[in-house]
Structure formats: structure tokens, C-alpha cells
Design a protein around this nucleic acid. Structure first.
Lengths: 366, 366
DNA sequence: AACATTATGGCAATCGTTTGAAAGGTGATG
DNA sequence: CATCACCTTTCAAACGATTGCCATAATGTT
């Protein structure tokens, strides 16, 4: 859909110069920020003493601490983070590397991550790969410098080599994967039970009489896709249904062509009687294609989608979903990362957390 | 819906310790990052020369530049950003302050912002206020330190005082508002035509025979809400419909109670024949309440919502939306901010950009 | 040949904060 | 009175990169 906005608004951009209505409030015009040096001079103390006072060191007497604190508050002193990052070799910053935030999964995950980070007094840098491996490499490469203390990452759909990640780990920065992981990298992974939930979803369809179940996905290399596919295949096998490779369909990762691909699938001679969509963004084209082909859901065809869309409830018919614990996964990923950052010799190598997804059975697959 | 996940997964959290399957790849274990100093020693040059070579200064000969570049590449040198930020008093970082990312508007906006920032070689720090004024203040206060070069902000719904923002501006950091602005702060604002689009939406309902149009919103203090409300009122007035204050309903900003509030509204003696939802998250409770009360949309009641949900197309019935140019607004906000960062004495005071929203008329309001 | 100019690279200070070591002061103890 | 312990504060060297100015050599100009 995005391309619609882009073209529409490229033409419609309107610039308006509004009248200045109110006067500008002066309020403490201190372009030159107050530094520790200024505090020191003002108080006839050394910078060292001021610094120690601010960090509540035992070396400084209670009275001077109070004087320092008072002036700092008065002058609204905010320490320069880069000076202290440089000296302490700690940035109090983490990076979150994502393919995109269009998806409601990642939106919720960011909320989870940010809430933990804010608690811990950490800052969050966000980077989007736009599903490009080259960008992911470039972004990760920057992290060797010390800009961040640790990294949370959900890899791009193009990623099938993990050297850029192992290099960052080797440079001493903890990395935690969430959702989209690299199996061959030994570090913490926060995932959901993709195989099992896909198995459950498929089994549910089979129990409701489906035999021609199609599986639609968007990336061959993502391990989560493969696990979901595995669950799908296993469910079919366990119910003695032969796997039809032509019902396993690869879509674009850029929305545009998916409607056509799905439509084509639905016009096959062995038309599927159920669809499992492995990612959220396939939901809309599926519903549209079914509507346009006058295939009633769930009558002619049943649908299950992996999605966190709240609106699943109010679709027509209500969508059966596999809902990932997005917020929790983000929160857990951040929590595990902070454990590694706070304990000295904490190893992430064998830490994997699996948070189960939930199959919400609704009308679309009943 | 979120609370459901929270309680479910709190109990279901499962920890699994996976077997280590593959050996760890060594690949350049250089815990101590290569610095300019190391390059200098290796090449028998001074740090100054190396620095200048890397920045392609005319003071350095072509040959030495090449030698330096070669070694830097070989040792995978990445400059320490904090050292150079400290020295240059530039962080190459911007902050994005948002109420939340649950909303699809903000997700798209982040995409827009990030794409521009990545182009310009800037880094993006993200902060969520969770609609709390106190957090917004605390976050903004930190920016006086030089952590970021500029700020993009969409204020919290609690914000009705803007001192924290003018203070940051006074400290020399450019600020650009987008979507949710503070009218009384003189700086760039990227907004959409809230009044006009609300006017259009309301007029559309009136033209389709509605007379009892309810307006549902979530915050009294947000200027965008007030502009939308104004458009609504103006449309009613222009069509000689008296404004009924009890049809202007304030909802929670935390999803939970909204279903009940809407249900109550729909059970009034003077039941509205149309609803305008001023924010995306009200869509689900509206549809659910209508369904549960057996009020057919658009037969008994018509619905229009301000939303960027792609799924609006496949709701039952398809939802009429006022769609904001989210991606474009994010992009524009970032673009304007970078103009201020790159030109020396560029004033943002009178810069306001209005990008129009689009009324997508669909079944729910026909 | 004397002087001016250009090309190249080094010196040292700087950004603001932190921190180990040293210095100054007090009081107590042998 | 000397010694020790302790409390408080200052000194100075980092952290890594940048940059104005200076030094040297090489080249050009008269």
C-alpha cells in the first residue's frame, strides 16, 4: 500500500509559512552548556572533586557533596555523555537492528525493549536493514567501535551468512537475537516455538477437514520460516497427507506482487482448501484475493496467519492467528542483554529462551 | 489486547538450554579495537597525520594516504564515535521522541525518519514517553548535554506545557515537531490538515444522511485532537446541525475501558447514527461494540476512523479511513531537521509543512 | 645565490569526564 | 614529639580523535 501514499503525496506536498503568533520565551539561554569545569570554578573546587561528588564517592565529604549537588541542580548540569563514554569505555547505549517496523510484531517488540532500557537508564539506537544484507553488514560493522555496549538483532530475510555477527561478538560486544536468528551463531536467542505453533495450526486445519493446505512464505533463508515450514510438513506427515510442493509458495518480501501470486495459487486446478500465511503482511492480499475470486472464508477456504494484528478480531471473518509474544520477546531480549552487560563474565553462548506463541482460533478456520 | 499476552506468558515462560552444536568461529579476535594510535605506530607516523590522512586532508601526500587507508582497511579500523563527538561537538545522532510505537502511524513515521537518517549518515536514538509528561520532560532534559544534534518529537497526550521543549531549543538544539505539535513553540512543524480532513469526513457522513454524529477521542490536550474536533464542529455548523456535547466522548488512552465507553455511547436514547474515531486504536472496540449490540455497519451506524491500518480494506465492512501520510511526514520531518543541522544559521522558527491526509471512502460510511 | 612558496608531516592542546595516586590536614596513640 | 591512621581534596594522566600552528624539506622565482 505504501507506494500509493508515496505517489499521491509527492504531488500534493504543500508548504505553508505560518505567521509567528507568540513571542519567543527566553528561559535560560545558555548555549554553552554547564560543564564540570564551570561547577568547579564556581565552587572553588577541583574538577576531580566535583566529579567525585556527583558520583557520590566516599572520598568526598557530605557538605561538599551537597554544595555541588545544589549548584548542579541550579545550573541544570547534564554531564556530557560522550566524554564519560570515552573515559569509561561504556556507552550506556544498545542497538536494535530490525528489518523494518512496518510489522506490528516489531512495533510491539520495540515497546518491550525500550521499556527495559529506560528502566536501566540505557539509550536505544535503532537501525533498519530494510531486509538488505549489505546494509545489515554495514550497520553491524560500525558496532566494533564502541558506539554501543550491546546489540539486539532480528536478521534480514537475505541473511544467510553470519560472519558480520560473529565478528561483532568477537570484538567483545554481546549480541542477542530475537525472533529471526542465525542458528550457527552461538549466542543468546529469544525465539518462539515456531515449529510447534505451525504444527498446531496445520493440525487444526486438518482436523477441520482440510487436505490441500497451502503454505505461503516470504524468505527461503530465514530460519523461522523454515521452522514453520517444518511444523507444517510434520503435521501433514503425521496425518498421512502427502506434501505437495506446489502448494508451498514463495512471495515477495515487498508487498506489491503478492496479491497476484496468491490469486494465481487460488486458481490452480488443485485449489487449496486452506492457507497458512507465515507473515502478517500476507493477510491483506489473501483476504482481497479470496474476496475477488468469490471464495468464501471459511466455507471454500480456511485461513490462518502468523500475525500480531489487533484487528484480526474484526476482520470478516475474524482471522485465526498464531500470535507471537512480541512485547514479551522484546522485553526478554533486552533483559538477557542487560544481564550480559551487568555481570562481568556472563556468557550468552548457551542461553536460549523460548516463549510460546498462541493459536487464537477464530471464524476464518472453523 | 496486550494485557492478555502479558498474563498468559507470565505463566508460560519456558527456558531451554540448547546444546552447543557448532564450534565457535575465531575470525579476528581483536577485543582491543584498533585505534588511530595503533595505526600510527604501525606506520611510523604521528596520530595527527593518520587522522588527517583518514579525513583526506590536503596536508597529507597521496602515497601516505594510501598506506594509511590500506592498513585501516586491513585492521578493520572503525573510528571511536565518542572521541570524535567530544572533540567536534557533533554527535551525528538525532533523537526521535514518540508516545508509543504500537500505532501504525508511528511505525511508518519511524521508517521514514530512519531512511533519511541512514542516507545522511546519522544515527537515530528512539525514546518512548508512553504518553507520560514526566517521562517526556526527563527525556528532553537529557538532550541539553549534546547527546544528540537535533530532536524530532511527537508530544505525549498529557503534554500541555512546553517549557521542557523551549529549554532544549534555547540550549541550541533544533527541534522539529511532527503530527502532535505544541502550538506555542516556535519551531518547525510537520503536520497534516487535521481540521480539513475531519471536516471532509464529517461532511461526507452528513451527505450520507447522518444527523447524530458522535466524535470519539482520547486526549483533551493534544492539538491534533482539537483541530479534528474543530473540523467536526465546523462541518456540523455549516450544515445547520446542532452540536450535541454528549456525543463528543473522551476515551482512555489505555485501551482497556474503551469498549465499555463506546458500548455505553451506543446504548443512549439519542443513539448516534455515525462515529468518527479520532485515533486508530478505537477502531477495534468500535467494531466489537457494534457487533455485540447487533448494530449493522453502515446500515444502523456509519464509521470513519483516523488510521493507517492496511487491514482497513479487509474489515467487515471495509473501513472508511482518514489516512495520514505517515511515512512522508517522518521523512519530511527528518529532512527539515537535517536542513537545520547542515546549514549554519538556518532558522526553523517559521517553517511549517502541511501534508494532506486522504479520505478513503469505503463501505463503512456509505 | 638568495629568497619565497609549496608540500608534507609532527607537536601539542583540546573536547569533558574519570580515577589512581599523591598531598594536605586533623586527631589519636605510643 | 614523632608516628600512624584517616579523611578530604587536588594532581595529572588517561580515553581517542581533531586541528591550528610550526618545522622541515623540496621546489620555484628573481
Amino acid at each position: 500500500m505504501m507506494f500509493i501514499y508515496e505517489t499521491v503525496f509527492a504531488q500534493k506536498l504543500t508548504f505553508t509559512w505560518l505567521q509567528a503568533l507568540k513571542r519567543f520565551k527566553p528561559c535560560h539561554i545558555n548555549m554553552s552548556n554547564t560543564t564540570i569545569k564551570i561547577l568547579a570554578k564556581e565552587l572553588n573546587l577541583s574538577v576531580a572533586s566535583v566529579s567525585k561528588a556527583l558520583r557520590d564517592s566516599h572520598e568526598i565529604s557530605k557538605e561538599t557533596k551537597e554544595k555541588v549537588l545544589a549548584l548542579a541542580r541550579k545550573l541544570n548540569y547534564v554531564p556530557n555523555p560522550y566524554a564519560s563514554s570515552l573515559r569509561k569505555r561504556k556507552s550506556k547505549t544498545i542497538a536494535v537492528v530490525l528489518p523494518e517496523v512496518a510489522d506490528s510484531f516489531f512495533s510491539l517488540a520495540i515497546n518491550g525493549i525500550e521499556s527495559v532500557a529506560q528502566d536501566k537508564g540505557y539509550h536505544v539506537l535503532i537501525y533498519l536493514t530494510h531486509e538488505s544484507f549489505a546494509r545489515e553488514e554495514a550497520i553491524l560493522n560500525e558496532f566494533k567501535s564502541g558506539r554501543v555496549d550491546g546489540i539486539l538483532i532480528s536478521v534480514s530475510s537475505e541473511t544467510n551468512n553470519s560472519d558480520h555477527i560473529t565478528q561483532v561478538i568477537a570484538s567483545g560486544k554481546p549480541v542477542v537475537f530475537f525472533d529471526r536468528v542465525c542458528d550457527d551463531v552461538e549466542t543468546a536467542k529469544i525465539i518462539t516455538d515456531d515449529m510447534e505453533s505451525s504444527y498446531k495450526a496445520t493440525s487444526h486445519l486438518i482436523q477441520n477437514g482440510c487436505k490441500n493446505i497451502a503454505y505461503i512464505y516470504t524468505s527461503r533463508s530465514l530460519s523461522i520460516n523454515n521452522k514453520r515450514l517444518e511444523g507444517y510438513k510434520k503435521a501433514l506427515a503425521d496425518h498421512d497427507i502427502t506434501i505437495q510442493e506446489d502448494l508451498i509458495v514463495l512471495c515477495d518480501s515487498n508487498t506489491t506482487g503478492n496479491y497476484d501470486i496468491i490469486k494465481k495459487l487460488l486458481k490452480k486446478k488443485n485449489r487449496p482448501d486452506a492457507l497458512i500465511a507465515c507473515v502478517e503482511k500476507l493477510t491483506t492480499p489473501i483476504y482481497l484475493a479470496c474476496r475477488d475470486l468469490k471464495l468464501s472464508i471459511p466455507g471454500k477456504i480456511k485461513v490462518i496467519s502468523f500475525t500480531n494484528l489487533q484487528a484480526a478480531l474484526i476482520l470478516s471473518p475474524a482471522l485465526t492467528t498464531v500470535t507471537q509474544p512480541a512485547f514479551e520477546m522484546g522485553k526478554m531480549a533486552a533483559t538477557v542483554l542487560f544481564k550480559a552487560l551487568e555481570k562481568k563474565n556472563y556468557s550468552l553462548k548457551k542461553e536460549t529462551v523460548i516463549i510460546p506463541s498462541v493459536l487464537n482460533i477464530r471464524q476464518s478456520a472453523t
